[in-house]
Amino acid sequence: MSAAAIPVEHIKTITMSIYRYDPTVDKKPYMQDIVVEIPTDKDIMVLDALHLAKNQEPSLSYRRSCREGVCGSDGMNINGKNGLACVTPLSEVLKRGKITLRPMPGLPVVRDLIVDMKQFFDQLEKVKPYLITKSDSPDMERKQTPEEREELDGLYECILCGCCSTSCPSFWWNPDKFLGPAALLQSWRFIADSRDEATEERLDDLEDAFSLYRCHGIMNCVSVCPKGLNPTEAISNIRNKLLTREKA
């Protein structure tokens, strides 16, 4: 989208206060105000506004891909709350003509709005986020009833954007030991799958003081998830599974 194509009477200016840091040239991070012209006759997304800002400041850096909320690239902190820039309408977050954008908290900043997601993905890999089967595969599909499949709704839709884990105080404190809401949601996604044959191992792997039990039910993860998923519920489902297993 280009500002130039919009008739003058339909333009207003907004101020985007954006976290800037390029370790190549900057000694320390700073907030830069970039004034952009946006249309008044239609709503645009935060990501669209970022494109307009980048046209003025080509060095401004952020991740983006699908621009429709399914790839999980553009998680960022918008006015203090994590969300996806591409599905956040500007009208919902603009306050007195201003919006503040920062990188997702708790992870090292690579540059501007881009964080180093290594810890996030390392934790994901620890839960063995793939189907484990021990029996032979049939020639056709493995059967699963619609009810069994329904158990995966609210779990398989995760886009790995990182909004949840980087808004979780427990993850901020122990990003290397507490797996975080995103990884634990994935763990439950496979435990809950009627086709998976590794439930006991998966539960064994979570049975320590940190991996799972550092969740204190703060529920920031639920309030920020752009897909409306509920990692806290997944975590409590795993807890219940661990508890009932001990009784058995």
């Binding site: 020639d139 056709m140 599909e141 059967k143 699963q144 009833t145 619609p146 499949r149 496979f190 086709r195």
Partner: peptide, 20 residues
């Protein structure tokens, strides 16, 4: 190729018979 994807865990929607 589709059955392989199912075996890898792709969460296909299901019919009453439990098929894809």
């Amino acid at each position: 190729a589709v059955f392989e994807l199912e075996h890898m865990g792709l969460p296909f929607s299901r019919t009453e018979e439990g098929r894809i």
